[in-house]
Structure formats: C-alpha cells, structure tokens
Design a protein around this nucleic acid. Structure first.
Lengths: 107, 107
DNA sequence: TTGACTAGACACCAATTAGTGTCATATAAT
DNA sequence: ATTATATGACACTAATTGGTGTCTAGTCAA
C-alpha cells in the first residue's frame, strides 16, 4: 500500500474505518501485538500490518519488538492537527446556533 | 469519481487537500459559483466539480442554481462528527500533559 | 533440535481515485 | 439571432488502494 516514501498525512490515516478501529483498540489496551490486532478483523494479517504501517507513518502509532512480537501503541498527538483544523469551522455551526437562538428569542 | 451511490463519509471527504482548500474558500465567501472555485487551482473545472460532488455527498456543501451558475455554500455541521471522534482521544494527550506537569511539579 | 508461532518482505490483483478532454445544454449578453 | 459563458454528463486513463497468498527468518517451547 504506499511502499515508496512519506506523504501519508493524518487526514488520510484516519479516513479508513479499519484504521480508526485499530486506533480504538489501541486506545483500550495500552500495547498490542499484530496478531491480536488482527483477530477482530476479517482480513488477513498482511492487510492489518499495512494499515498499521500507514498509521505509523502518520505518527499515530509507535511499535517496538518484543521477542517475536511487534507490539503497537497509540500516539494520539498528531490528532491535534485535526482538532485544530476542525475547530476553525466550529464558528459556523455556533453561528447557526446563535441565529436559531435569536429567532426563538424574538418569537 | 464515485458516480455510483452514497458511501462517502466525512472522513474521506476531508482527507483530500484540495477539498479542504475548497472548504476554506467557501468559509470566507459565503457563496461561490464553480468557475470561481476553480480559479485558485491548477486542475480543470471537471476535477473541481467532482471534488465538490464528494463534499456535497458528505453534506459539507450545499448548492443551488442561479441562472447559469451553480453556487456552492459551506455547511460545517457534519464536521461535528469529526470533532466528537477526535475529542475521545484528547485524554491521551491531556494524559501526557498531566504526566509532564507532575514531573515538573516534583522537580 | 525440532516444530510451532509471529511477523516482515514480496509479488500480484481488482477496484477506486483523481485527473483529463469532449460534447451537449441552458443562460446571458451583444 | 448569434455568440460567449457556466456547467453537467460522459468516456477514458494512470496511479493508488486495499486486499490476497507465499516465502523467509527470527524466537519460543517441548
């Protein structure tokens, strides 16, 4: 899946439901090896491994080798970028809420 | 680009830089026709139109015909979903900040 | 030390994506 | 009435994506 170089940003990383589910799993278990991360999915180990590689590229997971396992751990920091990006648009829905309040208030 | 059916969620919609830029443009101009939205990009009108279609599918833009133009307008509401999703992970980076504070406090 | 387990590295494939160009149509302007 | 503008609708293409299977190597256990 993207064997070549960098260029996988956080936005792309979280666009895939499988990858979001992986993050969720990692959010609850502190550290998990690939074979355990593969279990909840129908796809094969290779596919999950590639998804994890994309998450890793985006900085959302960190891995370390322990014996024959490769254990993955979440790193949520890059998600700040998403949060910042979204919060810029918050004023739009707040704006609408304000309009609505206004409307109801003048009713 | 996805001529068939639905299935374009918000996550996918914002994964593309062109589409994020489109949203930004629409955030500043209230309402813009396709030909004006195309101008800032190097790609052709057709491509931009398709990106807008994806944004529309995700509910992030609304359009209306005015004469021969099709004018686009932003609708930020679906971004709430992203915000909610990200905020779940906030505790992780807050957790780290807490740890750091602890560390500094005990210094 | 033999065998089972965990995972990386490849090669391969089908479906999707992001772009292109062209043609048709509706509207506006001269 | 004619011409220019704005866009939709298609057909096409190259690159990317998300998945597969196989082979290899390191590690753990009997």
């Amino acid at each position: 899946m993207n064997e070549k170089n960098q260029a996988h940003d956080v936005y792309v990383a979280i666009a895939d439901p499988t990858r979001r589910k992986l993050l969720r799993l990692l959010a609850e278990e502190e550290e998990l090896p690939l074979y355990k991360l593969t279990a909840p999915f129908q796809m094969g180990r290779t596919a999950v491994s590639k998804h994890l590689a994309i998450l890793k590229e985006a900085g959302l997971v960190v891995d370390r080798k322990v014996g024959r396992e490769t254990r993955y751990r979440i790193n949520a920091d890059p998600l700040r970028e998403i949060k910042d990006w979204v919060s810029f648009y918050e004023k739009f829905w707040n704006h609408n809420v304000a309009l609505l309040k206004n409307l109801l208030g003048e009713e």
